[in-house]
Design a protein around this nucleic acid. Sequence first.
DNA 1: CTGAAAGCGCTTACAG
DNA 2: CTGAAAGCGCTTACAG
Lengths: 340, 340
Amino acid sequence: MQKKSSYKPTQSDVAALAGVSQTTVSLVLNDEDIASIPPETRKKVLDAIETLGYVPNSAARILRTNRTFALACIIPDITNPFYPTFVNGIQDEAEQNGYEVIIYNTHGLAEKEAKVLKTIQEGRVDGMIGVFFHAKAQDFLPLLTRQIPVVRLEVRQHQSGSWPLDSIFIDNVKAAHAATSYLISEGHKQIALITGWDGPARARREGYLQALESATEPYTPWIQDISIFNEEGGYAGMQAILKEGQVPSAVFAGNDLLAIGAMQAIKAAGLRIPQDVAVVGFDDIQVARLISPSLTTIRQAQDEIGKRAAALMIERLQREDHFDGRVIEMPFELIIRESA
Amino acid sequence: MQKKSSYKPTQSDVAALAGVSQTTVSLVLNDEDIASIPPETRKKVLDAIETLGYVPNSAARILRTNRTFALACIIPDITNPFYPTFVNGIQDEAEQNGYEVIIYNTHGLAEKEAKVLKTIQEGRVDGMIGVFFHAKAQDFLPLLTRQIPVVRLEVRQHQSGSWPLDSIFIDNVKAAHAATSYLISEGHKQIALITGWDGPARARREGYLQALESATEPYTPWIQDISIFNEEGGYAGMQAILKEGQVPSAVFAGNDLLAIGAMQAIKAAGLRIPQDVAVVGFDDIQVARLISPSLTTIRQAQDEIGKRAAALMIERLQREDHFDGRVIEMPFELIIRESA
DNA sequence: CTGAAAGCGCTTACAG
DNA sequence: CTGAAAGCGCTTACAG
């Protein structure tokens, strides 16, 4: 290892150049009222910092203070536009408060979720905001006992507890119920659902089933399972449905990406949307209103949810006292466009 | 600060429980052939780790080893689908090699780019892969002198040097030239360009202008400047063009998001695509082939680019010797669909 | 095979 | 107002 003076200067290097002690350099850097540094001393130090291009070493600072000023943001799929918007909201709020955001992409996989949880125990962040498809409440315990607060985005109401674990949710059962009921009210008789079992899929499935059950006329559930939650999955799912010979008059897709894929399959089969098959999605991602026909869907305010989640986290990190977990419900809205 | 034994156990806690020294715990954890720990000792230690739920402290490890096993990934806009796909490629390659990826979102702003560059000097990562709209070569020097390698995604060929700075580029001038030439070859007489000045916009603008100049017939450039590089910007840009009274026979948009916005504006004006106005985009994001009409565009293999960028970085981090910067060109492809 | 010790670069009581 | 010193939790020569 070479020891050029220009290479990664430390506070000691700055101190030597400024002719003060390393302690003084640190004091200037953290200019709290712990000490009152006279302007001349301060200037000497600042000049030396400038000359050497000194930048504090984050590992040393974190080790010493036990504060990272970083937040982890865990999402299942960065290529699903829903999440980048959510992340954006988190980042906006976090940055305004001096926190940086570290994004982890789990691909919705149980093993990756577990790995991320482990990594975070290593003390890389002060708190974690996340969407988990598999992790259970107890999987968060190691973080919580380490005083790393968690804000979780959920798909239905869960009980709060005394841990520093807040949750923010949209009632996906109710939302899926609303979407399905809308199709029923529009006179559709065969309403298919394209979805899987991971993450929000289960709650949306429930909502769909409940809506069919509570209809005045009898409905037969028609569910097409898929395993990839994007356009590709939607396309394949819709193809499978059409292969059965019968054509449903409406399709409710587990998310907008699935809906977009399903629409492609419908068009490819020479059918019209919504005349032959109506389509409803879930999420209201950016492109939902831009495709043709524009997509009827459930809007969740991703950006707002992200902001709110970050605000919950930051409040917890800034307050001294401990307080019970909070549960916040966010609204959804059925956006009716051309596809249904 | 409390001192419960269950709270954030350290190697010393593990050592005490296992009845060995803290050094031995560390040795077991890093099981290199530095030392040969007999199975019984190893087991005692591993059991203690299990019992206490010990996880190493990353700050301490980083401070000591000067290795973070993290890569920074800097992108201008996480909500532009181009980038998540790029990030995905980076993450895949990085994770396979034991690196985690920290994503920074600059919003294409000069100040945020500068801030990120500063943050990275703090030693949070071993290397940086990024897309910068404003930062100049010299802005990377502080990283390079600190031995933090950089891989930069660029829009045209730049010279390599002796710094640990690799670049990977797609010739955006040539690509824009190809897109514009295609429109010319299709017989379009008035070809408008919707774009701005940041990032890749400048190179694409050049390609457009060069193509018009090299055409056999004379063409008048028709450029609509916008400042937001998404659907909204494209919509506004197209509206501005249509307000001029004349309707161009084709529009080349600076990226797919702009193209999608422009298509909406064209439809809103009651015009048909491509009969009245043809549209070409740039990037080939996921939805390009899913919208109606599907979008003719320039494909860049985002995923592949990300993988390649990460591979360049990792090779540099793993090799002992220093070697000159490399410049890699990646191909583009004109994808002809329905919109033009 | 195992442990004592130095030291990574900081912050923060504590003296003076 | 300023500095010497302890210590955050690790890794890694070095002894034995």
